[in-house]
Nucleic acid binder design. Structure first.
Lengths: 219, 219
DNA sequence: ATGAATTTGTTAGTTTTTTAACCCATAAAA
DNA sequence: TTTTATGGGTTAAAAAACTAACAAATTCAT
């Protein structure tokens, strides 16, 4: 039964992980897998896997388990990876450069069709085969080439202005690498996914500290 | 009362965000803030802020609120940002390059002291003022220069081997950008924080899809 | 073909996380 | 100085997330 009510974000965030493990299984030529076996590989409970998948429908078979290829395909549909997304990058610093060259994206249907920067000296150069344009030509570009996703890899000072222009131009999703919480500002007007690298690093610092104190306690 | 029992990771993951907002307040010269006011800025409940902070102690004052500078300082201690961390990067591709140049890290006490790559032609070159060394000299380097954190920015094929060598050398934390779940493999032997960029992008794809269907429904 | 062993979908129970409510200390105002 | 309003800490209630349990469907071995 296909998705009677809104699925919570914690479940959604686990789907890419399932997808990843299923890809691995496929490349090992494993054709079927039970929730129990998968749960051991992933270090989660089998219950959770079954619950998660059943938010979207019954993909398995009693006594058999899940067909790896089928489930892989279904999750890709759920995530919308079969849609294809025209993607641009705003900000061609080191990070924008790295993201443009990230191998995984193209493979999953994210087509890089434009790169933008505010620096005159970068404009005209190429990154990953794409010519850098000046940010001022953002609107005219999007008008000719519909854009689904914009990757924000620019300093946070410029983010607010740019994101408003992007939304006005009809961009559907923002992948934000700057340290502002865009979803708070643009609440509901666009899909936002933040990647707060600094936050993640701070979390690591905490985990290290925690581990040290834990170690000392058990001595 | 200082931390009677283990604080859950969901709370920890919110701390960097509080820290960020407090930094902003400081730069605006705002000296005090109530949980209510902060909750409105951050789009969370005031209850949650008070609960979260009280996991670590009473930093506020009834009738007054929180002293921004003091709270900012305390959170930085909780996260362990006052410790200082010797950090190396493994893998000097585009991503390693970008991370080496990330401005926020040095400011928060993460000292980049070494970069490593397996490619002979990269060895000897400099990134962000640091000379790239060959991965084979990893152990001898760490012996002379104690390393706290290693940033893994190499293809996943090499990650398992490298992480085991890092752990054996006494590295305390791994910041993993490859698409493997290190914490599953190295369970408990080291602090791990994953940044799964592809997962994040897939989540964005889902959010876009969800928003579209939501839009259609309300028409 | 039959029975035992699997293994899912699903429901019920448990734990965790979030939100609300309230008491009392402190600050600001009168 | 007294009064009033503010607002944190804390406890209690509600909601969300997770785990366990089990009937029904299927496979696999004999």
């Amino acid at each position: 039964m296909p998705q009677d009510k809104k699925v919570s974000l914690v479940v959604i965030r686990r789907l890419p992980r399932y997808y990843r493990y299923l890809s691995d299984l496929l490349s090992q030529d494993i054709r079927r897998i039970s929730s129990k076996e998968l749960s051991e590989r992933m270090n989660v409970t089998a219950s959770q896997i079954r619950q998660d998948l059943n938010c979207f429908g019954g993909f398995g078979q009693q006594g058999y388990g899940y067909n790896v290829e089928y489930l892989h395909e279904e999750i890709s549909k759920i995530l919308g990876l079969d849609q294809g997304y025209n993607t641009i990058i705003i900000g061609c610093g080191h990070l924008g450069h790295a993201l443009a060259n990230h191998p995984g994206f193209k493979r999953r249907g994210f087509r890089m069709i434009g790169m933008f920067d505010i620096s005159e000296e970068k404009v005209g150069k190429q990154i990953a085969g794409i010519e850098i344009m000046h940010t001022s030509s953002l609107e005219s570009f999007i008008e000719k080439n519909p854009v689904d996703i914009a990757i924000l890899a620019l300093p946070k000072e410029g983010v607010l202005d740019i994101s408003q222009r992007l939304i006005a131009s009809g961009v559907k999703g923002l992948w934000n690498f700057s340290s502002v919480d865009l979803e708070v500002i643009e609440k509901g007007r666009v899909a936002v996914e933040n990647v707060h690298l600094s936050d993640s690093l701070m979390t690591l610092a905490y985990k290290i500290q925690e581990r040290e104190t834990y170690k000392n306690q058990s001595e």
